[in-house]
C-alpha cells in the first residue's frame, strides 16, 4: 500500500472552505467600525443649575438603580421619605418628583442610555413622566 495523502478535488474544497469562513465571520466584519458610540446622556438645564446629583456622578452612573431600589423600599415599607446625602442636602425620595424634577428630559437622559444598554425598566408603566401627560 502506498502512502497516498492526496486530497481529491482540492480546488473545490478550498473554495468551499473560504466561503464557509467568510459566511461565518460575516457579522464581525460587516459591523467593523460601525459600533454605535456610547450616547452622551443630556443633562437637562434644571439639573445643570443644581450642579450636583444625589450622589457623585461616577457613583450615580453605576449605582442609580440601587439607590432607586432603596428609595422605593424605604418610602413604601418604612414610611421614610427624606434622603440626606453625604453633603447634608435633603431629597424627597421620589422617582418622578425628584429624579425627573432635575432630569426633566427623560427621553434624552434615562431612555437614551437605557436604549444603548438594552435595559427597559418597567417603572414607567406606573410612574409618570410629566412630559408625557401633557
Amino acid at each position: 500500500m502506498t502512502n497516498n495523502k492526496k486530497i481529491y478535488d482540492k480546488g473545490m474544497v478550498i473554495i468551499g472552505l473560504c466561503i464557509f469562513v467568510v459566511v461565518i465571520t460575516f457579522p464581525f466584519w460587516f459591523n467593523f467600525g460601525n459600533a454605535a458610540p456610547a450616547p452622551e446622556p443630556k443633562i437637562a438645564d434644571k439639573a445643570k443649575a443644581a450642579k450636583e446629583c444625589v450622589r457623585p456622578k461616577a457613583f450615580m452612573k453605576v449605582e442609580h438603580m440601587q439607590i432607586l431600589n432603596e428609595w422605593r423600599d424605604t418610602v413604601v415599607r418604612d414610611a421614610k421619605r427624606i434622603y440626606v446625602n453625604s453633603s447634608g442636602k435633603e431629597f424627597n425620595m421620589s422617582l418622578t418628583n425628584t429624579c425627573l424634577d432635575c432630569h426633566t428630559e427623560k427621553a434624552e437622559f434615562c431612555d437614551k442610555c437605557h436604549d444603548y444598554a438594552s435595559v427597559s425598566p418597567y417603572c414607567w408603566e406606573c410612574h409618570i413622566d410629566p412630559k408625557e401627560t401633557k
Binding site: D78, A79, R81, I82, V84, N85
Partner: peptide, 13 residues
C-alpha cells in the same frame, strides 16, 4: 468627613 447618607421621616409627618 465622609458620613454615609441618612434616611429619615419628613419633619412635618
Amino acid at each position: 468627613a465622609t458620613s454615609t447618607p441618612e434616611i429619615k421621616k419628613g419633619k412635618d409627618a
